[in-house]
Amino acid sequence: MSEWRFWFNSQRGTLLALAIFILTFAIYLANHPAIVNNGLTVQGVGNVVQTAANKGILLALIAIAQTFVVLTAGIDLSVGMIFVLCNVVASFVVVNNLGAAWGFDLGPVFGPAVGIVLVLLVGIACGAVNGAIVIFGRLQPIVATIATSAVFFGIALWMRPQPGATPEFAKALGKVMLSKVNGVIPASMVFLLIVVVLLWIPYRRSVLGRATYAVGSSEAAAYMSGMPIRSAKFLAYVWSGLFSGLGGLYITFVTSSGQADQAAAGTYTLNSIAAVVLGGVSLFGGRGSAVGAVFGALAFLTIKDLMFVLNVDPLWQPLLQGVILLIAVSIGSARLFQVRNRLELFG
């Protein structure tokens, strides 16, 4: 019985985010014009969910990326730029005839597969650069990632001064990744589930995963306990790069093109912070999970879309979104209501 209570206490943020998401998505579905007009059919709901899922997975992947670094009590302001850079890279290499220019053609199956691996390697490399600067250079993550994101943006802009894609881009693969399995379940959500089950859960249970939490709770205590703190922090940045890369890959499936978009990078970075906070991941480190961040991201997007289906005047939508974001993150993170002693406030 008492163990159950501990579990509930540690998952409180995740469960709250899940509750917010279910509530807002139910309101969203009930007011969506396609469902209001045609009634509650499996086909109609499936379409609405598919559209929302294909939008949601982008922020969900970036939010997971942010989670790894935030768990170590750091912050990664370059997730949006790694996302954009990987989008640009994917628009070059995820093609049906990879290697044709060098005399070997990998074909429409292996070509895109190798291209995807290349994109993810770029993401991992970006994360490794961040990790090396933060851990071995001993710079503060916030400044280091601001600087590296300028470099990542420069590289993206160099590769694609104008938005576009190679004509051989693997559009068929993109269509599959955005389709519905069995005509009901969105493929993107299946992909997200596979990623979480195959990557997040083994990581969370490994020694390095637990060390990540320990570093976030108290770096000095983790060091004294002989935790592999350097490897844990480095790995957190590498995972962050990998998941940003996955996000960049997915947006290439959505848009079938690459664009060095500075504004989009900034928006995704800021939204990823909002999503992890909504998802119950503590910015002080050591608390929260990627699952919570996913629900935080989905809830955040649903709140935004709610304005649209409720026919709020477009001019007032940004303000309402801002106020809702303000209230949501304030309630989630205000420590005023949790302290018993005045000195604890300064902790």
């Binding site: 477009p314 001019l315 940004p318 205000a334 302290v339």
Partner: peptide, 28 residues
Amino acid sequence: AYLRIPSMIITLAVNAVAQGLMVAYSGG
């Protein structure tokens, strides 16, 4: 200072509110 919300979060949200106010005021 009083609600003890981390400054990185609250200033981010306030930035969104200020943007919303200006979009509503200027019509975009």
